[in-house]
Amino acid sequence: MNPAPSTAGGDQARGLLEAREVSVLFGQTPALRAATMSVASGEILAVMGPSGSGKSTLLHCLAGILTPNSGEVHFAGRRIDTMSEGERSALRRDQFGFVFQFGQLVPELSAEENVALPLLLAGVRRAEALERARSWFDRLDLDGLQGRRCGELSGGQAQRIALARGLVGRPSVLFADEPTGSLDSLAGEQVMELLVASARDHQTTVVLVTHDPRVAAYADHEIIVRDGAVAFTARTPA
């Protein structure tokens, strides 16, 4: 569905996704202060930091959910913070996938309809959308659960359904905000194994917000957000 954005040459060097001096105010309270960071195409980046440090706000700015008060956000060479809401909405639908802490599945839909949802919203025919959705059940060890409702799923199963929904549209970037935050160690590990394996298979870039170092250790490198600023960037040497 989604042609990958050009990542040749310059984009790779500059970063596929970049925040430049991004500041966000919630009322009088600064949530981000001139945060600057980038993630290269195909990289898995962990965004770490204490609670309330601004890491989720940074993710929301990168994903075009939140418009910063100042600074710039660039994706694949395009500035997205100045786009219209319609353009950003199309960008989120066509290029980005999302996984949140509490799956946030639609309770009225079956598991496979939940996975197919991004495709249905993008205008893919129902039969094709469901077929593509079903192909993820085997991959994510969810066989037999296609017809279940959310209330009939364990936390780990629901989170793997949410992961499938985040990946079904073959996004360029997957945004994951504490994707294992509500799971025990074993279930969280399974979600991370699958997330990383799927991202690597499809060269999906991942922005992974987590306070958990064991989760962050699945990433290629990490940044630390403290008091709304990017306090530390540890790049893995090439």
Partner: peptide, 14 residues
Amino acid sequence: DTQRAEHMRRMREL
């Protein structure tokens, strides 16, 4: 922070 990065590097290896 430098120590933290060293720990994270080892955690990635493991």
